[in-house]
Write a protein that binds this DNA or RNA. Structure first.
Length: 771
DNA sequence: AGCACGCCGACT
DNA sequence: GTCGGCGTGCTC
């Protein structure tokens, strides 16, 4: 028997199957989808078995070992991988990497053994430990050629040290052995406190009065028996587990019943309900029924910030909830993955990367906030978690429930066209009225001589909330203190040397920073070009808003929340917890604050420069803007009547104007616009990103790409145009956009491969308009 | 990607 | 003659 194996190397030259002999020892255990260890040239590498065959004309070497008990890539995962590969030209190894957790990949370090100390050059000797072993990490590999020459003369021996990137965590425990034969136990009076049948860890024994050497002596004489136990790293959330059991409304009951009737069918539901209409209650009710049938559920949220509140709801009603997202530590993530693989979790709560998790007996997939763009991965191997979820729904014959207060135009279109089943929750069970929404044109404010970034109405309302001890949310969607700085003498704007975009000014650290590549340098008032002392910040960033707020309302306690502040683990939960405890009056933030926790005391929401996100050059800009504003407006007055004040310059645009009129108005306008310009759902839109170091060559290939694509029937080609990020890390970027009804992905792959070379890289983004 | 191999120039 | 750097070709 032979196995077809994909090697874990991301390189075009080795991007194909290699055949290996399966020896008799491994024959019974090996299965398709397992990770194996194989010889590869002079190396030993990990690979994935993709097929087991009877005949092979190329196999010469044997598989060394099997690394799994259960296949890492299940049949279902192969089905998903196949779908991803159909429309992308990514390397096999990259796709495998996307669908499995990075923690189970291998690290290939080296152990160097010292054989002949006298012959070894002196400058190397200090690297070896007492046992004569030097553990060499990846970043020290440049010394390898020298070591190999020493190996030839038998001075050292280099051995491969393979280990999984992350491993299970074990804890040693001590149990009393009642049958021990050690005589001198009188010396240890502490032993009388040790109970049989209890496992003690080292710290417990120390606190009972044992010294470390005493513990070792007693272990040596078998008074204590050592055992090793796997520890599941516990995932803590700042929130308490509490959930009120509520009676479902008739609407909610109906929605739940319709979903329950479709267990065992691959049907997609669109659960549409305004904020506070109780979509989560419907989820919980359906999940409960499903778990009684001993099936598993995958619950997905678009962002890590939404994990905690959903985890709280789920954990208070159900035991065995596994949680999976990118902010877990590597160890935590591995543990959760193992739990899921071993079928120890009935509910899996995750962000988009969890859509590939190996859940057994999957019975239902729920995607909350289905309209959220975070479900789409645009870096590395691109995929849309919503699409993957629908593949799994088909594969298992199970329902997929998409929930949203503001469904994406495409989902709503499908629901109204009966491709999906629409479930509508119209009433707010608590009977709270929708908040008042006021649109304020800042051009009028200026005419009235108000030059502040806050309108007079917003200022009055904020002061009013302070007096009433109620809370305010302020949304402002731009990071930093100022989007750029400008020399008032010569007009020079400092730019990133690699990305050619203006550097954002951060006042607290007094630095200029590139948003795309992270390049930073200290801010200097003296212009580098004309050497005048005239460099000043221009425009408004969130840090500037914060300082203005503090200046205008000196008594208010203000919290700020943006991506820069919440990069450390658990920090956003901490800020939310503070705000929930009313340790602050105003929470100022970027779009992060538009979703997540329910703040009962918030009765005012203010949005500054609401039309900022309309300026993004994409047909999705108006949809994103409407969703963001509706979402943030819904945060006001969850428990008593609230107020929303929206400031901007272009308030007549339907994405903002429809806020006062409702989702249906927005949907009609958006659909009309898309029909006119033939965008989704009337045509599909995909993009090509053409990158290269030479401006001219890159543009030329982009133009050739356009010419090749234009020859295809039923395809409309737009561009090439400069990408939203024109240049990043020394590479110029152009975009070609296509609109089509049907397309042959193989032809697309062929064209992009033809036009890609060492200098020019072309990446195809199916169903995307974001670059 | 990462290994061996072979060529070459620098240094003893 | 040996050491170290770099280009090339190959991996079942």
């Amino acid at each position: 028997m032979f196995a077809k194996v994909i090697i874990d190397i991301k390189h075009q030259n080795v991007n194909h199957h290699y055949d290996y002999i399966i020896n008799d020892e491994l024959k019974d255990d090996i299965k398709i989808g397992m990770r194996v260890l194989v010889p590869f040239g002079a190396q030993t590498r990990m690979g994935f078995v993709t097929d087991i065959i009877e005949k092979s004309s190329t196999a010469t070497k044997e598989i060394l070992d099997i690394l799994d008990h259960v296949p890492t890539i299940s049949d279902e995962l192969f089905y998903i991988i196949n779908d991803i590969q159909k429309q992308s030209s990514e390397l096999y190894s990259s796709v495998f990497d996307t669908v499995i957790p990075g923690e189970i990949k291998l690290d290939y370090d080296k152990d160097v053994y010292l054989l002949n100390e006298k012959e070894c050059p002196e400058d190397l000797l200090s690297n070896f430990n007492q046992k004569g072993i030097w553990h060499l990490k990846k970043n020290q590999f440049d010394i390898l050629p020298r070591l190999r020459r020493l190996q030839k003369n038998d001075v050292v021996e280099i051995k491969l040290a393979i280990k999984q990137k992350t491993n299970k965590k074990y804890k040693t425990t001590y149990t009393l052995n009642s049958n021990h034969t050690y005589q001198k136990i009188d010396k240890y009076p502490q032993l009388k406190d040790i109970k049989a049948d209890i496992q003690y860890d080292k710290n417990q024994l120390i606190s009972l009065g044992f010294s470390i050497s005493q513990i070792n002596t007693l272990t040596k004489h078998q008074v204590f028996i050592l055992s090793s136990q796997q520890m599941i790293r516990n995932i803590k959330h700042v929130f308490d587990d509490k959930d009120k059991l509520v009676q479902l409304t008739d609407e909610q009951k109906l929605a739940a019943v319709l979903i329950k009737q479709s267990f065992n069918q691959s049907k997609t539901f669109l659960l549409k309900g305004v904020t506070g209409s109780g979509k989560t209650e419907v989820y919980l009710d359906v999940i409960e029924d499903l778990i009684k049938q001993d099936k598993r559920v995958l619950v997905m949220v678009p962002e890590i910030t939404l994990i905690a509140p959903m985890a709280q709801r789920l954990k208070s009603r159900f035991s065995s909830v596994a949680i999976y997202h990118s902010a877990l530590s590597a160890g935590e993530r591995l543990d959760q993955y193992q739990m899921i693989l071993n079928d120890e979790a009935s509910i899996v709560l995750s962000t988009r990367s969890g859509v590939f998790l190996p859940i057994k007996d999957l019975g239902l997939i729920i995607m909350d906030e289905e309209h959220d763009r975070s479900y789409i991965q645009t870096e590395h191997v691109t995929y849309d978690a919503k699409h993957i979820a629908s593949l799994r729904s088909t594969y298992h014959h199970i329902p997929l429930v998409l929930g949203s207060a503001t469904p994406s135009v495409v989902s709503m279109y499908k629901a109204l066209g009966h491709e999906y089943t629409l479930l509508n929750l119209t009433s707010r069970p608590l009977g709270i009225e929708q908040p008042d929404i006021k649109l304020i044109d800042m051009k009028d404010e200026l005419k009235q001589k108000n030059t502040s970034i806050f309108s007079r109405d917003l200022l009055i309302s904020m002061k009013d909330r302070l007096k009433k001890e109620e809370q305010t949310l302020i949304l402002f969607n731009r990071k930093g203190y100022a989007p750029f700085v400008l020399c008032r003498q010569c007009g020079d704007v400092p730019k990133c040397p690699d990305c050619e975009i203006s550097l954002t000014y951060y006042k607290d650290k007094n630095i200029l920073k590139c948003h795309y590549c992270g390049y930073e340098k200290p801010f200097n008032q003296t212009c580098e070009i004309c050497h005048q002392n005239a460099v000043k910040e221009v425009g408004v960033g969130i840090e500037y808003v914060e300082s203005e707020l503090k200046r205008t309302l000196p008594n208010a306690r203000i919290l700020r929340m943006d991506r820069n502040l919440t990069q450390t683990k658990g920090s956003h939960e901490k800020i939310w917890h503070q705000f929930l405890n009313h340790d602050a009056d105003i929470l100022l933030g970027t779009q992060m604050i538009s979703k997540g926790l329910d703040f009962p005391k918030v009765t005012l929401v203010g949005v500054l420069m609401a039309d900022l996100s309309l300026k993004v050059p994409s047909y999705l800009a108006s949809e994103d803007t409407f969703m963001l504003l509706t979402q943030i407006a819904g945060r006001s007055g969850r428990h008593q009547k609230g107020e929303v004040i929206i400031q901007g310059y272009d308030l007549k645009h339907y994405a903002i104007d429809a806020l006062t009129k409702g989702y249906d108005t927005f949907y009609k306008e958006a659909l009309y616009e898309r029909k006119l310009s033939q965008y989704e759902p009337y045509s599909h839109v995909s993009q090509f990103l053409i990158e290269g170091q030479s401006y001219l060559k890159t543009y030329q290939n982009a133009f050739l790409l356009k010419k090749r694509l234009s020859k295809l029937e039923t395809v409309t080609v737009l561009g090439p145009s400069k990408a939203l990020i024109k240049k990043i890390r020394q590479n110029f970027r152009f975009v070609v956009t296509i609109k089509y009804k049907n397309i042959d992905h193989d032809t697309i792959k062929e064209i992009t491969n033809d036009l890609s070379n060492d200098d020019i890289h072309i990446k195809y983004y199916p169903n995307l308009d974001m670059i």
